[in-house]
Design a protein around this nucleic acid. Structure first.
Length: 556
RNA sequence: UGACCCAUGGUGUAAUCGGUAACACAGCAGAUUUUGGUUCUGUCGUUCAAGGUUCGAGUCCUUGUGGGUCAACCA
């Protein structure tokens, strides 16, 4: 056992107490209950990590249950993507279940409530029901249908099931208390009529249970011990417990946590949909999207996302987590696993005047200095090279370490060069550097005694291959776009995607596969995009490297 | 003019029975470095307010203040 004291979050404390007290027969069974009506996003990821993580920590299990009780919004396509995303995140559900499988049992539960005088069929219109609800500060009023007999309710409810009544004409409501301080308890609707095709049950049903009549009951049927949901369900807990109590079924318990908000992003389905529909991004898996598929395409790893969820922790207060922490987790993981390669975003030609024309020298370099197991590979070195335009300045400020006229720089894993001459075009743009290299300064066997202040990346101009590189940055310019009065459109970061079409990369990258992880040295972490083809490589910047120079130079 | 939930460094989260307020990220300073990356060292900075209980309060009590949630035949 390690001796670092891992502190518990409030849910872990509850679980430990329940386990110690022998509640639920010492079992722990959680569930992740997505509605299959959209793509999973970072918020779902935290809920997944929470539910599966809790079970993993205490020897319990987790069910994946699709909360598919609203046929008009749900589709099989979403089921598939959710299944894939959960698996990708690294979790295996004990069982994959569907609330719709419980429709017969849920119907029986409703009949039971009617028989107990705890539910009634209401013929009021939606508007009338809303009006009778009252307001948070004003009690509601009883429906004129509230005192129907059990027999009449039974007959009407069966008629609802049989399709005898038009959609929206009647609902089944719980008979609780129209004066309750908790609006949820003012005779909530339990069942509604919908002549809609369900993605799994087809046309078997024309009545569907509402969330409150389905969720807790599904938990109970599965004998879920800890049903964990977000804060907005706190007022529902009273109804959750009431229904389980009235029905006399397994006492699952609901606990609520504050969902984690990420700075510079939105997760509301409406806003995400708008980004896609108005083509502000290129689809649900655009690397700027906070969807799991987007983050995957961006190059974030499941391990980094899980690490992030763990570091952020869980509590019950409102929060806005700094995107920087997620980026830290991504960098930390990628630093361990990413192969170091060289790529040049903005090539500047360098000619080594004292290197033989037509000669290629092969130089060894580490694939990953953080991981000796990663091995080495060879880089071709020639008379003409590409370096990054940013790595040369004609009139450098004092703290600039890179190449300048007459100055030295080390080419990573190669030789030290000196800039002898600057060639410009008619506009005065620097287009080429004439340099000399020091043959006795080869990496690993340097006897030159020279001490250049910096090491820069480079490519053989003869062997480098072209590539498209997509530089991604945060999608929004403000920390909390969800709570900004301005239109979403005004908050979009115009530089959230900068496409570099004329980049060059080293020849080894010809063999790259979609999803491979790289560190382009001194530039950032990159991954191969699904759009990539052998004759047109495409790389996405996952996240840049920390950049101290940017700080120093902009500070002036 | 209701009920419920919440309040700890810049951010997020701990402090188990009431017993020295800490961890991570960010920031700052330095060391190392063939990536201005990584790594290492140091450092800055925290209990919403007022009362009360107590030898002792982030923790318990009271009253405020501030933020959030609730009036879908959505989940």
């Amino acid at each position: 056992m390690s001796e670092n004291i891992e502190s518990n979050n409030f849910l872990e404390t509850i679980v430990e107490e329940d386990l110690a007290a022998g509640r639920h027969d010492g079992r722990l069974l959680t569930r992740f209950p997505p509605e299959p009506n959209g793509y999973l996003h970072i918020g779902h990821a935290t809920a997944i990590c929470l539910n599966f993580g809790l079970a993993l920590k205490y020897g319990g299990k987790t069910n994946l249950r699709f909360d598919d009780t609203n046929p008009t919004t749900e589709e099989t396509e979403y089921v598939e993507s959710i299944l894939h995303d959960v698996e990708w995140l690294g979790f295996k559900p004990a069982k994959v279940l569907y609330a719709s499988d419980y429709f017969p049992q849920l119907y029986d539960f409703a009949v039971d409530l009617i028989k107990k005088g705890k539910a009634y069929v209401d013929d009021s219109t939606p508007d009338e029901i809303a009006a009778m609800k009252g307001t948070p500060t004003q009690a509601g009023t009883n429906s004129p249908y509230r005192e129907r007999s059990v027999e009449e309710n039974l007959t009407l409810f069966e008629g609802m099931k049989n399709g005898d009544f038009p959609e929206g004409s009647r609902v089944l409501r719980a008979k609780i208390d129209m004066a309750s301080n908790n609006m949820i308890m003012r005779d909530p609707v339990l069942y509604r009529i919908k002549f809609a095709h369900h993605h799994r049950t087809g046309d078997d049903w024309c009545i569907y249970p509402m969330y409150d009549m389905a969720h807790g009951q599904s938990d109970s049927i599965e004998k879920i011990t800890h049903s964990i949901c977000t804060l907005e369900f706190v007022p529902h807990r009273e109804l959750y417990d009431w229904l389980i109590d009235q029905l006399g079924i397994y006492p699952s318990k609901q606990y609520e946590f504050a969902r984690r908000n990420l700075s510079y992003t939105v997760v509301s389905k409406r806003k995400l949909l708008r980004l896609v529909q108005e083509k502000l991004v290129n689809g649900w898996d655009d690397p700027r999207m906070p969807t799991i598929s987007g983050m995957r395409r961006r190059g974030y790893t499941a391990e980094a996302i899980r690490d992030w969820a763990k570091r952020v922790g869980i509590a019950k207060r409102e929060n806005l987590v700094d995107l920087g922490l997620l980026e830290f987790c991504v960098r930390e993981h990628l630093n361990r696993i990413a192969i170091r390669v060289m790529g040049v975003l903005d090539p500047l030609k360098v000619t080594l005047t004292n290197f033989p024309e037509g000669k290629t020298e092969w130089l060894e370099t580490d694939n990953n200095p953080e991981d000796p197991e990663a091995g080495t590979r060879s880089l071709p070195f020639n008379r003409t090279l590409w370096i990054e335009k940013d790595d040369f300045m004609e009139n450098p400020p004092p703290k600039y370490f890179r190449l300048s006229p007459g100055g030295l720089a080390r080419l990573k894993s190669a030789y030290i060069i000196q800039c002898d001459e600057v060639i410009k075009d008619d506009q005065g743009e620097v287009v080429e550097l004439k340099c000399s290299y020091f043959p006795d300064s080869k990496s690993g066997e340097d006897t030159s005694g020279l001490k250049p202040k910096s090491t820069i990346h480079w490519l053989s101009a003869e062997r480098a291959i072209p590539a498209e590189i997509r530089l991604y940055d945060r999608l929004f310019t403000v920390e909390d776009p969800a709570n900004d009065d301005r239109d979403l459109l005004e908050l979009i970061n115009p530089e959230s995607l900068v496409t570099v079409r004329q980049a060059m990369v080293e020849p080894a990258l010809q063999e790259t596969k979609v999803g491979d992880k790289y560190q382009f040295m001194r530039l950032g972490y990159f991954t191969t995009d699904p759009d990539s083809r052998p004759d047109q490589l495409v790389f996405n910047r996952t996240v840049s490297l920390k950049d101290n120079w940017k700080k120093v130079s902009s500070a002036g």
